[in-house]
Simulated scan of single mutants.
Amino acid sequence: MAIDSASLGLRVAQARQRAGLTQEDLARSSELERSAIAKIETGARRITALELARVAEAVGERIEWFVQESPPAIVSHRNMSDPGEPSPRIDTAIDRFVRAVKFTAQHDGNLRSTLRSIPVFDEPTSATQTEALAQQARELIGVGPEVPLHNLSAKMVGVGVLTFVLDLGPEAADAGSVLLEDGAVAVVNGALRTGRRRLALAHEFGHILIADEYTIDWRLDSTQNSRERIIDRFARALLLPRKSLDTQWRRLGGTERSKTREAAVRTASHFRVDMSTLARRLLDLSLIDDETAARVRTFKTERADIVAHDLVVADELPAGELSREYQAAVLRLFTSETINTDRALDLLMDTWEPSDLPELAPRDESEIWQFTS
């Protein structure tokens, strides 16, 4: 769709502010005069395609962000934020993933059917309600109430949630999610360790189930507000179900000080969580006291532990992982020649090389004439 100079100028101003740049900074980076930037932002001067490309590079945005409407949930979130603050990297990443998913689903019926309507649950207001929501969530994704929840992203696809993992760096947010018209997109920071990545995704699942349209979670185990504390507990309960954890902890002798470390190492491996999450969950269930929790947080799984206890080392949700259903949809568009190589690689978020794409079957002469006649 066409966009007028005033709207385009406003987007330039928003992108500059989120990038933490002054008009002088942007002018220098884009090889424009500061007065030109000022006029562009007010809509008094048109911006050429080449100038827009330089501006986009300077502020770390994609050109499509300036000329196409963003998903409503993202627009709402950004309008609520302080316009003088730099934009989190995850904001930009989520915007790109949502656009890519919507485009791909528009052209691929299988992906459209995957993005089904997600049931909405009442927001819990107590520990009891939070534990109940975690059990309902397990039922929703087809996992028994007591078994370890592995391969969470694959199971969430069954209810319409697509997960993407991108290394955003240690200073960026842990995760974020967006509800679409049907389905949802969750983005996890691949810079986190495996256990924290799983906790981050579980946390986003909680937001999705209570229909938070758009969320950015900067750090897990938040104490900022009651909602975040509730979602934190939901995530722990989802990954560490009460009865199973209680049984495992007592069977391994976790209640005995001399056996606490071994019990923690084996339990964390069994449920694929980090020590901080395990300690907090054990406190939730009154299985340990504060002193023991502090000790558990200091434990590290060593190489000797892996050998001695025959532990499974799983790198779940590695950086660069894209939803398998989404990747398959992109490949279908490529092999049907709905999109070209560059567009396919773009939709695959530059996690694929051109050589990774399948070779297209050559067309015979009759097919060529269909395209030229």
Score class of each variant (00 low, 15 high):
I3G: 07
A6R: 15
S7Q: 15
R11H: 14
Q14E: 09
E24K: 06
L26Q: 08
A27G: 07
R28Q: 14
E31S: 06
S35E: 09
L50K: 15
A53N: 04
G60A: 08
V67D: 08
P72K: 01
P72H: 03
P72Q: 06
S76P: 09
H77S: 13
R89H: 14
I90K: 09
A100R: 06
F103L: 14
A105C: 10
H107L: 14
D108S: 05
G109E: 04
S113C: 13
R116E: 05
S117T: 05
I118K: 03
I118Q: 02
V120H: 12
E123W: 03
P124I: 00
S126R: 10
T128R: 15
Q129I: 08
T130W: 02
A137Y: 04
L149K: 08
A154W: 14
M156D: 03
M156F: 11
G158T: 12
V161M: 08
L166Q: 09
L166N: 10
L168I: 02
P170K: 12
A175S: 10
V178R: 04
V178A: 01
L180E: 01
L180I: 03
A184K: 00
N189A: 01
R193W: 10
R193T: 05
L201F: 14
A202E: 05
F205P: 00
I208G: 07
A211Y: 03
T215Q: 13
T215S: 08
W218M: 06
T223G: 10
R229V: 13
R229P: 04
I230P: 00
A237L: 09
L240I: 02
P241L: 09
P241E: 03
T247Y: 13
Q248W: 13
W249G: 01
G254W: 01
E256G: 08
E256I: 06
K259N: 12
R261Y: 07
V265Q: 01
R266H: 10
H270A: 15
D274P: 14
M275V: 05
L278K: 00
L278Y: 01
S286N: 06
L287K: 07
L287Q: 06
I288Y: 01
D290C: 09
E291N: 13
A294M: 11
V296E: 00
V296D: 04
R297F: 12
F299H: 05
K300N: 08
R303M: 12
R303I: 12
I306L: 04
H309P: 13
V313T: 07
E316R: 00
E316A: 10
L317T: 07
A319Q: 12
G320A: 13
L322A: 13
L322S: 11
L322P: 10
L322D: 06
E325M: 05
A328G: 15
A328C: 14
A329E: 09
S336R: 15
E337A: 12
T338E: 06
D342A: 14
L345I: 06
D350G: 04
L357I: 02
L357H: 03
P358Y: 10
L360E: 07
L360W: 01
E365I: 07
I368C: 12
F371T: 14
S373D: 11
